[in-house]
Write a protein that binds this DNA or RNA. Structure first.
Lengths: 229, 229
DNA sequence: GTTATTCTGCCTCCTAGGTAGCAACAAATA
DNA sequence: TATTTGTTGCTACCTAGGAGGCAGAATAAC
């Protein structure tokens, strides 16, 4: 399924998006910076019915909760170069997500109408926006597929693979390297205690290194070998 | 989560899309009709790298297979008013789906570039297209969420609810009413034998009626009552 | 420095759902 | 009409993973 390149490809698009946004005449006129503190509820600061947001830095978890079991599923883990909420932008309805600020976050807000105009006027931005949209739809399809086909252990392997980038020539885990196991669990659609089993197994096998709020790739090749096709 | 209205809303957008497509000057010039026979492999007739397709009638299952277990997951069940492939249109890469013609199907094909131009030029079509995109992204999010949170029985209930429309004032199952249990299973992310248990239970409880390749809603209120929030 | 809180690791139990296999029957085809 | 193929229903088994509970360690708050 070529999952290995998805994260990398996204990241590339996202870098270009920020550059294009900076150049845009709209942004200089109507942009507003928003700063969110870790742990703060973004609901008060964010209005997806009227504004569109670009993530400059930080980390934002967009998820849903099953209130019966209090199990979570993370739909999007937003970081530098991400935008939201695309669904609200497209259909005009405010979203139903729950969000949590995992790290102090800096956003640029632009009125929805200006973004729509930008998509029409700016050919480069339009193509980048479309590519971003396609990536999000694909990533959601992949999430559904992996929830249906693979066990927790495989899903954890896939998660790590998707978030591993080359640092020089050393494969390094980004974005999800300093999460709580609780958040890892939410990203692969299970609960902490279960994801912990997989993490311990990978640690025992010398694939990763674990310490409090820190996961590192120790042997990326071994990780790839354990991936089911 | 307001799932009950999603299917209805989609259907409304899809009707309007077909009307708009018919009016379009592009369509009259460059459209081509394509007819697919039930069971035929669409791969030969369909070229998503260069063309975009509108479904006029019939039924097309877009899915993925886990070759290890031969379990399937249906990502999209396309019928009248649906379009594909939106991902290819957006990012220019050919898709990786597997498709199956469940009923004789009639398509209109339009070159990708013409559709892109149509999105730019035709305000009405653009908004419809965006709404459609948003609906697809949402439905994929819902699929992931329901796979993660709910058991097979609940997922079946949700599936039936999403595909129940008002026929006069009688709640009637559409599109998925004449599928094999195999296909129902693929839509809720499980296998036939497991989905069969849920179907038998619903039959026993007087919620649905079952016969070969036919499912009917017998008591819609009862169905809603069994839905978890 | 001390207390409180959050994070992590590891038990044990138990059920949903996946696997296997088969038989009855409907429907398509020869 | 006879034969083959596709669809459905049901049994019995077994394992992945969710639930509950708890203790130790790291960090944050006071």
């Amino acid at each position: 399924m070529g999952m290995k390149n998805i994260a990398v490809e996204e990241s590339h698009t996202q870098q270009l998006i920020l550059k294009e946004v900076e150049k845009s005449p709209f942004v200089s006129k109507t942009q507003k910076k928003i700063y969110l503190k870790k742990g703060e509820d973004p609901l008060n600061a964010i209005d997806t019915k009227n504004y569109f947001y670009f993530v400059i830095s930080g980390k934002l978890k967009i998820y849903q909760i099953d209130f019966k079991t209090s199990k979570e599923l993370t739909l999007y883990m937003l970081s530098r170069g991400d935008m939201f909420d695309v669904v609200s932008l497209l259909d005009g309805n405010p979203n139903q997500y729950i969000s949590e600020v995992l790290e102090d976050t800096e956003l640029v807000s632009i009125p929805l109408e200006d973004v729509k105009q930008m998509i029409l006027d700016d050919n480069t931005f339009r193509q980048l926006f479309y590519t971003y949209l396609a990536a999000k739809l694909k990533s959601m399809e992949n999430l559904a597929v992996s929830l249906s086909f693979y066990d927790v252990y495989q899903r954890v392997l896939q998660l790590f693979t998707n978030f591993t980038y080359m640092q020089g020539n050393k494969p390094t885990l980004k974005i999800i390297d300093n999460l709580r196991h609780e958040d890892i669990a939410s990203m692969v659609g299970t609960v902490r205690k279960v994801v912990n089993r997989s993490l311990q197994k990978l640690k025992k096998d010398g694939v990763i290194e674990l310490s409090r709020k820190n996961i590192q790739i120790k042997n990326f090749q071994k990780l790839l070998d354990k991936l089911n096709v």
